[in-house]
Structures are given as structure tokens and as C-alpha cells.
């Protein structure tokens, strides 16, 4: 076998080894990506639970500023109620509670229900 042929065969072997190594590396990278995605999902899970289907949780209440928390707790006691009913629990003016309840509606924690000419509020996301 000539020197050129020997070198050619060696190059072919090296090429095969490179292809094999590349394949292994691709598998490792793919597995790492999968692991990263899984870890990411697990890390996000508790946060998603806090923002779960229920509009009411201790975590949500703690995130709210004091004035809205008071309104939210009062509405939770009523389960469903009007602004004046919430105001009778918090001891604040009806107009103020109406404003706070509408803020909670915009934040997505409370829903508005129209019954004839009256507006009722309820915690959004029935458990």
C-alpha cells in the first residue's frame, strides 16, 4: 500500500470518528436541552399554582396592596356582593369600594355580574 493510500485510509477513519463524536455530542446536547426544559417546568410549577384557576389564594392576597386586600377579603366573606355590602364590612365609603372592586376586576381577580339593574361582584375563578 502506497504512502498516499495509508494516509487516505487514516483520514477516512478520522472522518468516521469525527462523525461518530458529533453524533454523540448532538445526543448529549439534546438530552441537556430536555433536562433544562424539565427543570424550568418544575421551577415554574409553584408559581403557576399560585396563579392557578382560582382567583383567590393567600399568595394573591399577599401580592395585593393593603387597600385592595381589605376589599378582596371583604368580598370573599360575602362570596358574592354589591359595593355597598363590601363597604359595610370594610367601613369605607361605597364609592371607594366601587372603585377598588373595579380595579380588582381589571386585575382579573374579580368578576362583575349584572342582575337586573344592580351590579354584583364575585371572586373570579370558582374553585
Amino acid at each position: 500500500m502506497s504512502k498516499v493510500e495509508v494516509e487516505g485510509n487514516a483520514l477516512l477513519r478520522m472522518e468516521k470518528e469525527f462523525i461518530s463524536m458529533r453524533s454523540y455530542l448532538e445526543q448529549i446536547i439534546s438530552l441537556q436541552k430536555e433536562m433544562m426544559q424539565r427543570l424550568d417546568r418544575e421551577e415554574k410549577a409553584p408559581e403557576e399554582a399560585d396563579n392557578g384557576s382560582s382567583g383567590l389564594s393567600v399568595a394573591v392576597l399577599l401580592r395585593l396592596p393593603d387597600h385592595l386586600r381589605k376589599t378582596m377579603v371583604a368580598l370573599s366573606k360575602l362570596v358574592e356582593g354589591r359595593a355597598d355590602e363590601v363597604a359595610s364590612i370594610t367601613g369605607r365609603a361605597r364609592a371607594i369600594e366601587s372603585g377598588y372592586l373595579n380595579q380588582l376586576v381589571r386585575l382579573g381577580y374579580v368578576k362583575k355580574i349584572r342582575k337586573k339593574h344592580q351590579i354584583y361582584f364575585a371572586i373570579d375563578g370558582e374553585a
Partner: peptide
């Protein structure tokens, strides 16, 4: 029980109280 279940329990406790 999962955290999500415990969170949802708050709404049920309020209903129970009512």
C-alpha cells in the same frame, strides 16, 4: 395534597363560613 389544592381550599373555607 398539592399546593394548588390548598390554595383553592381558601375559597371553599369562605363558602363554608357563609
Amino acid at each position: 395534597k398539592g399546593k394548588k389544592w390548598e390554595i383553592e381550599a381558601l375559597q371553599r373555607i369562605y363558602r363554608m363560613r357563609k
